[in-house]
Design a protein around this nucleic acid. Structure first.
Lengths: 393, 393
DNA sequence: TCCATTATGTTCTCGGCGAGAGCAAATTGG
DNA sequence: CCAATTTGCTCTCGCCGAGAACATAATGGA
């Protein structure tokens, strides 16, 4: 959506702008607010709303009156309007949900899976997606899938602890007419924060998701930085801590060896088995919270590494705000002093007078699904997407 | 320039698109190429070209005939057209040049300066800028200034080895009607590469400039990532090397302590004095080139740190290409093996099959001036900028 | 040398779009 | 109950780019 060039494109661009704005406002904005916000004439807005309604893209419903004057209406989703399928594939289970314009989610199915081999897991998921697509019919305009590893050109590049390697996920998940878009789970969690969470309206935001690994994304004007091939955000694989441990990723001394579930075990001197330590990590956190000194020391060590690395990335990328999800929230909350001290010490002096705040993500466990839905809507809420929808009926 | 919304805005947006395209093509593109490239109708292009000519924004001149058919013309700068002033303030001297549409530079003045106090240096520069502005008259539409340190909200935040600290440079340099825009020199060198150098057409590029310090910028779609307050690109101030030396910036273990002029001295065991070692560093490079083993070892050490850190940032940011300027070019060329080995070892395994190439910058010493000129033109080559120009005559 | 071919510039008409004005409608609050 | 207020609706107007038809200016082969 680079902007209209011809007078004929104006209409479709403005249509997309209006529907996008209604979507971004989560179906809470009134027509008059949207009109003002987009700088449209009232007459133009009337035409656009009529066209959206006619095309079953959106619908007006009465708004609670707030002040004097003729009442206006809220522009929200149409009961027969477009849906996206949001899919969250985790290491041991997946969830399928629908999202409507405005972003409201409805979970439709949730199932455990064996984890391996990837082809089995993905084709099982593909079957389920196909079933929902059939149920929902042509209302589904796209499928967004969150995957727990880096995604490049539609392929899952590498999930060491599941031993997935270069899996052609997009191909296996291809689903009828609806386009399937893949994204990394940490990236999509960040995207969700940027659209509907703690990074809303932030020009440059940095999001970290901590689990076994540490992933994240840089959000510029509400969208994740995509990189050359879609694998930006592997902040965990920079040698930020001066360690010399070899990492599953193939490099050495990666930051994510010092921050995350396994890092907690390592700090406790407990042997680390691939993808098995999440419960142990939570026990360490619980122990630290209960006052156990050894647990507390391990937690502090990890929190220090987390704070120091965060500072490094803040130095380099100058975000306005940093958000955390996954284990990162508790790491930082339970060892607030250790984190804050390391964070401040790692900042360049000139950043210390007004450092970017580090905040927990506002969206809870749904973040990844929300992000997956946004990913799919991003491809639809364009002049081309809406024109295709209108042409199809 | 977010795109036209009303039919009245179409004209000015297309005018700006056309002039921007002519500028980006360095005054080499013909009208027919531009028309095709922008997807304009021939009739529309005729009107736009007439308007550009009429407004003295651009001018057509005959193009060498290449094939059969009616000849077309090259759309290039107008002899009375807009100019920007490009200023490069270095640690010991400054340069003032003009740039016209298409980017051609003409150096107008070059002078050494004492370095301190900053107010004296800057007001001397301001006087010179004012003189050139008076000479050139209203053709100058903006002034872009490159500064050798981080810039935030128009202030030079911190240049430790010059002991500049929070200097209100924009205020001191304010120059009549022409807007003054400041930028970091490494950022602007990267911008120049993105527009007219080795990062041309690259969706995501990473540029490093190495001198005493290591700075850089991430270029997304031809523009530097700006960050929340304009201080992105301080990649040198991440602890990528596991050192525990304190850095002038206030943090510890910064990468730029291991890569740059001072790092070479340090690797040789030579005492480091602030801002004094550039010649010594060049001597070390020359010695290494001549085959001296101790010099070679120091160079290798620095090149390894450079390669490893580059890999870390490639992991995190997924650029399509990496470019180097300043000392970085020789560091990498003279110790190509050390760099390459460390670079590859630092990459995540899945990036090794097709790692982003690391290339020397294509623009030589002019890069910073070119970038400063682009910075100023970016503010002008917009619908608003052109409308103001047209209104002023 | 000449003319068919080719590519591009020029001009004009046409359809479409948003701005904006004027009016209608619907609510509030004194 | 009515003035004030805000918004929706409708219609006209000016402007813009598309596209067609035509004009123009070069090439290159016969």
């Amino acid at each position: 959506m680079t902007g209209a060039t011809t007078s004929g494109e104006l209409r479709s661009h403005n249509l997309a702008r209006l529907l996008r704005a209604a979507h971004d406002e989560a179906g809470r904005a009134t027509r008059s607010e949207l009109t003002r916000g987009l700088g449209l004439a009232r007459g133009t807005a009337a035409v656009l709303v009529a066209e959206l309604t006619e095309a079953r893209l959106a619908e007006e419903r009465p708004a609670p009156q707030r002040a004097r004057g003729r009442p206006t209406a809220i522009l929200g989703p149409h009961p027969g309007g477009p849906l996206t399928l949001a899919v969250d594939l985790r290491e041991d289970a997946w969830t399928i949900a629908t999202a409507e314009i405005g972003g409201a989610l409805t979970v439709r199915e949730e199932r455990p899976h064996p984890g391996n081999p990837p082809e089995t897991v993905l084709s099982g998921l593909a079957t389920a997606i196909g079933r929902h697509l059939t149920d929902l019919g042509p209302r589904v305009v796209g499928v967004g899938v969150a995957l727990p590893g880096p995604v490049r050109d539609g392929r899952v590049v590498d999930i060491p602890h599941l031993s997935w390697r270069d899996v052609p996920a997009a191909e296996i998940l291809r689903a009828g007419a609806a386009p399937v878009t893949l994204g990394n789970d940490a990236t999509l969690a960040g995207l969700a924060e940027a659209r509907r969470g703690a990074l809303r309206g932030v020009a440059v935001g940095l999001h970290f998701h901590v689990d076994f690994d540490l992933g994240g994304t840089l959000l510029v004007d509400g969208s994740p930085l995509h990189g050359a091939r879609g694998t930006t955000g592997e902040f965990g694989h920079m040698p930020l801590g001066g360690s010399d441990l070899p990492c599953d990723c193939g490099a050495v001394g990666c930051w994510s060896l010092q921050v995350g579930a396994n890092a907690l075990l390592r700090a406790m001197g407990v042997p680390v088995e691939p993808a098995r330590g999440r419960d142990d990590a939570l026990r360490i956190l619980a122990g630290a919270a209960a006052g156990d000194a050894r647990h507390g020391a391990a937690l502090d060590e990890v929190a220090r590494a987390f704070g120091a690395g965060t500072a490094a990335l803040v130095n380099a990328l100058d975000p306005q705000r940093v958000t955390l999800s996954g284990l990162g929230v508790r790491l930082r909350e339970q060892a607030a002093d250790a984190f804050a001290t390391a964070y401040e010490a790692g900042l360049m002096a000139f950043r210390r007078d007004d450092p970017p705040p580090v905040l927990p993500a506002a969206l809870g466990g749904d973040a990844t699904l929300v992000g997956a839905a946004e990913l799919a809507f991003d491809a639809f809420l364009t002049p081309e997407g809406l024109t295709a929808w209108q042409a199809a009926r």
